[in-house]
Every structure is written in structure tokens, then in C-alpha cells.
Write a protein that binds this DNA or RNA. Structure first.
Length: 444
RNA sequence: GUGGAUGUAGCUCAGUCGGUAGAGCGCAGGAUUGUGAUUCCUGAUGUCGUGGGUUCAAGCCCCAUCAUCCACCCCA
């Protein structure tokens, strides 16, 4: 059986999850799922592998390069899912007859990107998505944003802002500055670097990437700089002669969405930001990115993003189905929360630790642990034996909160000693009251 | 994909001028009878990331490779 010694290791960008991280992680997942369900979203799942042709060409040039692709054993060209949105589009196109409209679904699962790993960036990570397929309305946009905001609230993430923009706004602004709309993504990327390289840097970058005059570059910058909120954005677009219909569909839509989200009590989290562009090709309307405000983790990037993609489902079938969604990056968010010390205490033991003082007490200890579990108290038996001090120590280290000591003296009287591991306080109660007493201690 | 830094005990790291390794924490045991988290004593653990090369001699120098981190790019 003993083969040659192997290097035990994990693939670059792939990670094991140990109990101290996995405990809080499960709690996060539960909270997230509860919010999704509370908003009427139904769970689905899709395969990790898709035919490569389903996924390629949906994410833009950069995204395509990051797709894991290979031939399976039957010679089929396959790809691992890069996100949950494109698989959803395929899913809706394929099963449309069976789905209600609108279709609200949530999907939690791993996705894979052959990216270069960095802090908060992994090759395998879990996304938590909520999408609403079937309607293009401000209410649909707002509903999905509210779900995202409620998730953050449920996870007790306070320092987060959602930066919101609209693809229609972007193209209108670019056109207003006298630049070919097709060049919009390139221009946005330059604008987006304003914080890092300053106004002069952006102008230089625009001249270079757009091959335009310095005057045009400055115009692009000023148009974007001026559109700092929805009111000034409207003014910029009016002045640039953008027609009313386009303004209504973009700025007007954003206004409506902001108002609706405010009605849900989350207006203070939403910010218009003309520099949000989103690299993924499939977005057609509102787009958003969530950033944590704490400077310690600002560099970790967006933790919850999404937008409207009205043409993606249609690209797989005969029917156009408008859709909007939001996607939370669980691993990245957890990494950030961990760095901020907001990610639980890493305890993973049961609440109660049952110690048999002597080997002769083992049967009684097992019976007691069973009683506790039946009463809804999580309990684990000390299996190491040996000195009581050592046993208590190991229970404490495991994160157990109370220890129950089963010994000959107490047993003779039908009693058990219950010790609070944090305070050290101890009391002796009858066996029949043990579960109740422990439950009481745990409630404190 | 581009550029840079790092890799020594389970963890965080020290290791001078090349002379085959240390600390703190943690872990294990003990300080007489059935009580831990403070104290004291004792102990164990390393192919110095991996593979080559230079040298009488390599943790240290050179090359390659893998991994991690950082800045780009992009993104959850």
C-alpha cells in the first residue's frame, strides 16, 4: 500500500477549508440563503462543466482567456463555469417552458477562473447569485439590489457602498464627449484610474488608448468628472443634446431605482458612480459593484456585483428574456471580514463537553451525552481519557462552553457536576436536570 | 498574461563573512489521591519549498522549477 512519497499539496489558487474558516463560512451561507428565500427566490443548481461553446464569447476577450477549457475523455470540448450567470441564461433558455415568469432564482456554488491568484482572488471560489428573469423594470432592478443589501445587513457588513451606473449612461457620456461609442470600454478604463494616476495621467492614457486629441481627452474627463451625481449627470446629458428617450431609459431608470431602494430603507448605501463600467460583455442596463469602505481591505476589490443583461438569455434561444442579477463573492468577502476581525471566533467544538472521570464512568457519560443531544444541546464526549485536568483543557481548547463531569461520587447520588469553562464555576445537579441546566447556561 | 518580492519547526520569524540550524508561540508529558485556561520543570518535531550547479564545504552563491505575496491587467 505504501507507494512512493508524494508531495502533498493543492493546486495554485485552490484551497482547503479548515474548521476555523469553515464554521463561519457555513453560518454566512445560511444567512445568505435565508435572505434569498425570504425574497421569494428559488434555488437551482447547474453542472460545473458546460460545453465550451456555451461559455466562450460571453465574457469578452479577457474573460475568455480565464476560462478553464479542456477535452473530456470522450473528446468533447468542455469548460468549467466561469460564473453562475451564463449557466443561468442557458438554463432559462433550455427549460423556459417549465419556469414561471418572472423567474427568481438563487444559486450558490463554486466557479473557476484561471486567473493569477492574489489576495482575495482565487481560482476556485463560491458565488452567491440572485437573479430575476422575465421583466425589465425599475422594480426588478431595485428588487435585486435590495436582496444584495439585505444580505450584507444579515452578514453584519456595515462598511459597504454599492456604486451604481448604467451602460446607457456610459455610452451617452462618451458620445457627448465626441468619442465613438464603440470605444467606450477603453475610455472608461482610463477614467477609472483617476484615483491612481490623477487627471493628467488619465488624459495621457485617453490620448494613447483612443488615439484622440488632447482636447477630446480633456473633454471626456471633464464630462465624467462633472457627472458626479444623478442631478448633474442629467444636466450634462441635456447640455450634450442627448435625446429625452435615451435619458429616460438611463438616468430616469437610475432615479427610479434609487427611489425604490430608498423605500426599502437602504438608500444610504447606493451611490451613482459614472466610472463603474464592468468588464463582462453581457451587461446592457444598470450595473453595480460593491466595495468595502475600510481602507485596510479596499484593495481586495468588489465583493458583490452585477447588473442587467437583457440579451444574454435570448442569445441561447428564440425568446428574448430580460434579466437582472447580483452576485456575491463569498470567499473574497470572508477574506476581507477575517482581516477586519469580523469573522466569528473560529470555535468549532460542541457546546457541552462530557468527561468520564474514570473508565467505569464511560457508560454513564455516553448516556448523559445522548440525553443532552436529545434535548437539543450539542455535546461531544471526551475520548482521550487520562487526567481530568487534561480533559478539561482539551474541551476548553476545542471551544466547548461547559463541561459535564461524570464520576463515581456523583453517580452514586444520581448527580453530575456541571462546570462553566469560561468562569470556572461549578455546580452539581441531578442527572434529570442536567440538560435543562446546561441549556440555561448556554443561553447566557 | 506582464513586472517585482519571498519560501527555514504546526504558526510567526532569526540565522553575521559560505563551516550541515535557533527563538517565541503552539504541541506532548510532569509538579503524589477527582478539576483546565496564570506559574514552574521536562520533551519532541526540520530532506532549510523542490531539482540541479559552483565549492574541500551551501540555509546562505548560481540556474531551473513549484508555491505564496505585492503592483499591473482584469475581476467575486
Amino acid at each position: 500500500m505504501a507507494g512512493p512519497m508524494l508531495d502533498v499539496r493543492t493546486l495554485k489558487g485552490f484551497r482547503d477549508q479548515l474548521p476555523p474558516e469553515m464554521g463561519p463560512r457555513r453560518a454566512m451561507l445560511q444567512a445568505i440563503e435565508a435572505v434569498f428565500r425570504r425574497h421569494g427566490f428559488a434555488p437551482i443548481d447547474t453542472p460545473a462543466l458546460e460545453y465550451a461553446e456555451i461559455l466562450t464569447g460571453k465574457y469578452g476577450e479577457e474573460g475568455d482567456k480565464l476560462l478553464y477549457q479542456f477535452e473530456d475523455n470522450g473528446g468533447r470540448k468542455v469548460a468549467m463555469r466561469y460564473d453562475l450567470t451564463v449557466p443561468l441564461a442557458r438554463f432559462v433558455a433550455q427549460h423556459q417552458a417549465l419556469l414561471p415568469s418572472p423567474f427568481r432564482r438563487y444559486h450558490i456554488g463554486p466557479v473557476w477562473r484561471a486567473d493569477k491568484p492574489q489576495r482575495g482572488r482565487f481560482r476556485e471560489f463560491v458565488q452567491c447569485d440572485a437573479d430575476l428573469c422575465g421583466h425589465n423594470s425599475a422594480l426588478a432592478d431595485a428588487e435585486v439590489l435590495v436582496v444584495g443589501l439585505e444580505v450584507l445587513q444579515a452578514l453584519q457588513v456595515d462598511g459597504a457602498r454599492i456604486h451604481v451606473n448604467h451602460r446607457g449612461v456610459l455610452t451617452a457620456l462618451i458620445a457627448a464627449a465626441g468619442v465613438d461609442p464603440a470605444a467606450a470600454p477603453v475610455a472608461i478604463r482610463a477614467i477609472d484610474k483617476l484615483d491612481k494616476i490623477g487627471p493628467d495621467g488619465v488624459v495621457a492614457e485617453l490620448e494613447r488608448t483612443l488615439a484622440c486629441s488632447p482636447a477630446t481627452a480633456r473633454e471626456v474627463l471633464s464630462v465624467f468628472a462633472e457627472a458626479s451625481d444623478l442631478a448633474s449627470l442629467e444636466a450634462v446629458l441635456v447640455r450634450a443634446g442627448v435625446d429625452a428617450e435615451v435619458r429616460a431609459a438611463s438616468v430616469g431608470r437610475l432615479r427610479a431605482v434609487f427611489e425604490l431602494v430608498a423605500a426599502a430603507g437602504h438608500g444610504d448605501r447606493l451611490f451613482f458612480d459614472a466610472s463603474i463600467a464592468r468588464g463582462l460583455d453581457y451587461y446592457t442596463g444598470i450595473i453595480y459593484e460593491t466595495r468595502l469602505t475600510d481602507p485596510k481591505v479596499a484593495a481586495i476589490g468588489a465583493v458583490m456585483s452585477g447588473g442587467r443583461y437583457d440579451d444574454l438569455i435570448g442569445s441561447f434561444g428564440k425568446t428574448q428574456v430580460p434579466a437582472v442579477g447580483i452576485s456575491l463573492g463569498l470567499d473574497r468577502l470572508q477574506a476581507a471580514l477575517r482581516e477586519l476581525g469580523l469573522c466569528g471566533d473560529g470555535r468549532f467544538g460542541a457546546d457541552a463537553f462530557v468527561v468520564a472521570i474514570d473508565e467505569a464512568d464511560a457508560v454513564a457519560a455516553m448516556a448523559l451525552a445522548t440525553d443532552l443531544r436529545r434535548a437539543g444541546v450539542s455535546a461531544e464526549l471526551s475520548t482521550r481519557g487520562g487526567k481530568i485536568g487534561k480533559q478539561l483543557e482539551s474541551g476548553d481548547k476545542r471551544g466547548c462552553r461547559v463541561a459535564l463531569l461524570v464520576g463515581g461520587n456523583e453517580r452514586a447520588r444520581g448527580e453530575v457536576a456541571i462546570k462553566d469553562l469560561a468562569s470556572g464555576g461549578q455546580q452539581v445537579v441531578s442527572l434529570s436536570q442536567a440538560a435543562e441546566t446546561v441549556a440555561g447556561l448556554l443561553r447566557v
